[in-house]
Amino acid sequence: MSRFTGEMLSRAEELVSLYPDPRSATIPLCHLAQEQDGYVTNEAMAHIAELVGSSAAEVQGTASFYDMLKLEPVGRYVIGVCTNIACMLRGAYELLEDAEGVLDVPVGATTADGLFTLEEVECIAHCDRAPAAQVNYRYFGPLDRESFETLVTQLRNGDLDDEVPPHGTLLRVRREAPAVIPMEEIDRYRAQEAEREKASD
């Protein structure tokens, strides 16, 4: 478990194949690991290191740099209340306090039922709907205590399942395209073009 197997492994290999250098797939693979397990497990990081040709310490170094990549388990829904300036000016800290009250957990914690993790986040570019929040990176706003409560209830009841997949699933649209053109082939195209250019000049 936690290493990529079956379909996840073939998706992982496809991601690696997209780039001229396999290491570029590191972050997409971390997202894939989160889709599989909800967070990036140690086993997944070790496997990613094998797939892209880095050391596990390097994959960890990368993964631990980014806020979205969780190295510890989180709830099914990670709720991030934005408190950056635009939201703050429109009541974000009050909303955050309300959120703590509604979920009955402090910022950074996960509810006992494992459903919600509450975070305070930096600007999510939803400032025209301030104060705003994201649930697994799906955006909501403007929110107040009442609408936040409603949101939580809907999530709990599964009313938003279509809109908000469990934490870790980022893209539900998969790449549908022919295999990436090998760089060598592109190199040849470009060289031919340059030749043609030279001839026409």
Partner: peptide, 23 residues
């Protein structure tokens, strides 16, 4: 996108890369 875009001699791929949360 891809090989010979709109029948021209120009070919290129675009890959979408998600960031992971770092300003």
């Amino acid at each position: 996108l891809g090989r010979s875009i709109f029948g021209s001699s120009f070919s290129v791929d675009i890959v979408l890369q998600p960031g992971a949360g770092a300003y």
